[in-house]
Design a protein around this nucleic acid. Structure first.
Length: 531
RNA sequence: GGCUGGGUAGCUCAGUCGGUUAGAGCACACGACUCAUAAUCGUGGGGUCGCGGGUUCGAGUCCCGCCCCAGCUACCA
């Protein structure tokens, strides 16, 4: 394996949540990115997983009368791993924070922090909710009303809180303010997009306090290596998944190859943890920091923010059941600007599905295959002389592929798809202009017309070949069907092995290949739902 | 309150360093075509660029003020 591995991560998702389209969004974007990089011929590693410790999980398990381990096993099996299947995610690894490798690696990391004097024992003070047995953040504490008049209450569940202190281990985050600011300055693309970078810098500039990183009131967590009384605070432990999955503390060779990560994809709500606490911890432990933290925006559903605490959560499989995983992947990549907030709606998904996937792309594949079937008995004809019309097609294709690759490099899948769609539009226009059905009328008696017809259909088939390859990272299922229908594999090999940098070279499909008309790539869907 | 984004066509969004008549897709209307999934191609209508001032030969773009939306302002994750 090469020394340079393109290592991409999603956040590990908290098992207590039900998977919703936001989780799916993050995971799909990472998958598109990594599949594209694989087709560039790079060594790639894509990690996702689940965050399974903490008091909330423990409490939920108790409520359900099972052990926390049984509880998380069930959630992972019933909810989280199936989401990856639903969305056709090709992750290389799946880490669970209950994995032994994570437990061992986390302890090793803490030991390193301890030995480097980055951790000390202190006392954590804050508003503690006895009812829910946890500390409540300052923002979530309000003055009580009615029966709670005169008390402070938690905004989260309305329970009374009192000011308490607890012995905890602390991380010397306060020491890292200037180091982090210097780091951001020297690495302007460490946090993207700019809006997230601004907020992080502004946050750090206001000053950093040391961070409480252990808990001693419950035990569903990883023990602090030198103190049995404490478990690691779940957030701090969760961040460690990125290194423990890469072999930290248990497999040095693997770790050296994977770390540091190239991109941590996160929602903007957790950008700060990844862009402030995480690099500081890595610096403290003497490890290199990741190349980039990319914070994506909120999904606005019907004008409302999509979030795990709101009832407007939509499950990924609701969309996939109707439109399929390819359409899900396409929609989120195409319709939203990665990094900005964006609106989504059922109507918009349906509109884009029909206009872009069914009418634009799917129908293109249909009409080409149908004509090769009708005029050449399903055998791909060789092209004769290329005219200006064909050269316009090849130029458009080459330029579109180049622009798409550049867009992926800039982590802008929406731009990549916009570029790729220029190929779809060009081919549909080319076919209309060339009107092969008219040329076909003379082909039986006119040699020039026959050659022309062959050239036109060969050109469109070549265009489809390019589309299958460059759309494979986004829509692997449809691309596979198209690859099959083009009869490409015998001459060119597996679709996933087709390289982006070679795809625009013309004339790769072998003359004589068997072209079959596929069932519709994206059949029209009669929707009555207006969710 | 402070800070950061944003407000452009019915909808979703582009708009570079200030420069021609403000763009795209969808939707809508009309026309062409008949290979194709009632698909495709072309043409067209549609704008007080949040509001008010200012700078400038010229402002969606720069400056000032205001309105509205979202986010951040640390230990639920």
């Amino acid at each position: 394996m090469s020394a340079e591995t393109f290592y991409v991560t999603t956040p590990i998702f908290y098992v207590n949540d039900a998977p919703h389209i936001g989780h799916g969004y993050t995971t799909v974007m990472g998958d598109i990115l990594t599949r594209w990089h694989r087709q560039r011929g790079e060594s790639v590693w894509y990690l996702t997983g689940t965050d399974e410790h903490g008091q909330k999980v423990l409490r939920k398990a108790e409520l359900n009368g099972v052990s926390p381990q049984e509880w998380v096993d069930k959630l992972v099996d019933d909810e989280w791993r199936p989401m990856l299947e639903t969305l056709d995610i090709a992750n290389d690894d799946y880490i669970r924070t209950t994995d032994q490798r994570h437990i061992d690696g986390s302890k090793a990391f803490w030991q390193a922090l301890y030995e480097r004097d980055a951790v000390y024992k202190g006392s954590f003070e804050g508003h503690y909710s006895v009812g829910s047995e946890e500390f409540v953040g300052e923002d979530d504490v309000v003055d009580g009303e009615g029966d709670d008049e005169g008390f402070k209450v938690s905004k989260l569940d309305g329970s009374r809180v009192e000011y308490m202190s607890e012995e905890n281990y602390f991380f010397r985050l306060g020491d890292y303010q200037q180091k982090l600011l210097d780091f951001y300055e020297a690495n302007p693309t460490f946090i993207q997009p700019e809006s997230a970078r601004n907020e992080v810098i502004s946050f750090v500039s206001r000053g950093l306090r040391d961070l409480s990183i252990s808990r001693s009131t419950f035990d569903w967590g990883i023990g602090v290596p030198w103190d049995d009384e404490h478990v690691m605070y779940v957030w701090i432990e969760a961040l460690l998944n990125y290194v423990t999955a890469a072999g930290y503390g248990v497999d040095d060779e693997r770790f050296a190859q994977l770390w540091p990560a190239n991109i941590h994809i996160v929602g903007k709500d957790i950008a700060r943890f990844h862009a402030v606490i995480w690099p500081a911890m890595l610096m403290a432990a003497g490890q290199p920091v990741p190349h980039q933290v990319f914070a994506h925006g909120w999904l606005l559903v019907g004008g409302q923010k999509m979030s795990k605490s709101k009832a407007n959560g939509i499950r990924p499989d609701e969309i996939v059941d109707t439109f399929g995983s390819d359409a899900y992947r396409y929609y989120f990549a195409r319709a939203l600007t990665f990094g900005s907030d964006g609106s989504i709606s059922w109507e918009d998904i349906s509109a884009r599905y029909h206009a872009e996937l069914a009418n634009g792309f799917g129908n293109l594949a249909s009409r080409v295959a149908a004509m090769i079937g009708k005029y050449f008995d399903g055998t791909l004809p060789a092209a004769a002389e290329l005219t200006d019309a064909e050269l316009t097609v090849t130029d458009t294709v080459a330029e579109a592929v180049r622009a798409a690759d550049e867009a992926i490099e800039a982590v802008a899948p929406q731009d990549a798809l916009a570029s790729i769609w220029r190929i779809v539009d060009e081919l549909n226009g080319y076919i209309t202009d060339q009107a092969p059905w008219k040329v076909a009328k003379d082909a039986a008696t006119d040699e020039a017309a026959a050659a022309r017809l062959a050239t036109i259909l060969n050109t469109t088939a070549e265009g489809l070949r390019v589309l299958a390859v460059v759309l494979n990272p986004v829509m692997p299922k449809a691309s596979a069907v198209l690859w099959e229908s083009l009869g490409a594999e015998p001459a060119l090999g597996a679709l996933a092995d087709q390289r982006i940098d070679a795809v625009a070279a013309w004339g790769q499909l072998a003359a004589g290949s068997i072209i079959t008309k596929p069932s519709s790539l994206f059949p029209r869907i009669e929707t009555t739902e207006t969710a």
